[in-house]
């Protein structure tokens, strides 16, 4: 068996010297090229979980392994797409993508070529030299996703990437992301509030309880790929949706 992209081993995390328990013995894996979603009520410690995987925080106990190596508390092992596009306003669109690649250790020239090639592929080449503020929210998130996709780290963390978009843009973005990901598979861990989004995109869904967070249920999403955007019409889709909704009650 090949090594997992991410392996969480019995993670506990509490703040204020133990009085505030956030994560309570969380263990799961993300296999190579697997798309896993985490869904849970607000305040279920998803932000803390990402900070732990990113190495910004250390767990009270437990270990984080990325690509078969222990990375607990060490940074630079993940590609990241936050809820806010977080593009540097003083850098052009292309330069923003290049920045992410260069921080991850990609050579300047190679990062420039990759940025333009991919901007062309997603139809945003004409904005390569524009500043981010001229892009719409959806376009900014496409750039933000591209920046994470092109980063050389094998694991991508998507932190409610479409949470700030309107419903219509959100749907378009989900389809767009699904299409790109199905053609360019990477290991993904997605945090989302939307059950439909999780069902449409993921191979597996982790349902968390509220604080302290424990794993309530792990749900396999059996739909074949490439998936149809009309997935929500299938009875199984709605059954799973109902199941998750019940878990979150």
């Amino acid at each position: 068996m090949s090594t997992s992209a991410l392996e969480l081993k019995d993670i506990y995390k509490s703040f204020d010297s133990g009085s505030k328990q956030v994560l309570d013995g969380l263990s799961f894996t993300v296999a190579e090229n697997e798309f896993v979603s985490i869904i849970g009520p607000s305040g279920s410690g998803k932000t803390t979980l990402f900070q732990l995987i990113g190495g910004l925080e250390k767990p009270t106990s437990g270990e984080v392994w990325i690509s078969g190596k222990p990375t607990t508390g060490s940074r630079g092992h993940i590609a990241y797409m936050p809820q806010q596009a977080s593009l540097m306003p003083w850098r052009s669109v292309a330069a923003n993508i290049e920045l992410a690649l260069q921080v991850a250790g990609v050579e300047r020239k190679a990062s420039g070529i990759a940025a333009r090639e991919w901007l062309d592929r997603i139809g945003l080449l004409e904005y390569a030299d524009s500043y981010p503020h001229v892009l719409s929210g959806g376009m900014q998130q496409r750039v933000s996703f591209l920046r994470a996709l092109l980063s050389p780290q094998p694991l991508m963390l998507l932190d409610e990437p479409f949470g700030a978009l309107d419903a219509l843009t959100r749907q378009q973005m989900q389809r767009w992301l699904m299409e790109i990901w199905e053609q360019n598979k990477r290991s993904v861990l997605l945090v989302t509030h939307s059950i439909e989004e999780a069902l449409l995109l993921s191979d597996r869904i982790m349902v968390l309880s509220s604080a302290p967070a424990v794993l309530l249920e792990e749900i396999e999403v059996p739909f074949a790929r490439p998936r149809s955007p009309q997935l929500w019409k299938e009875p199984l889709f709605n059954e799973l949706k109902q199941q998750i909704q019940d878990l979150l009650q």
């Binding site: 590609a79 990241y80 977080s86 992410a100 921080v103 963390l157």
Partner: peptide, 22 residues
Amino acid sequence: DPTLRNYMQMIGAGKWQLFMRL
């Protein structure tokens, strides 16, 4: 901007990169 700072730290920027790039 704290969101930009968090982004830079998440992708592994060190103190010097944080200073120069952000």
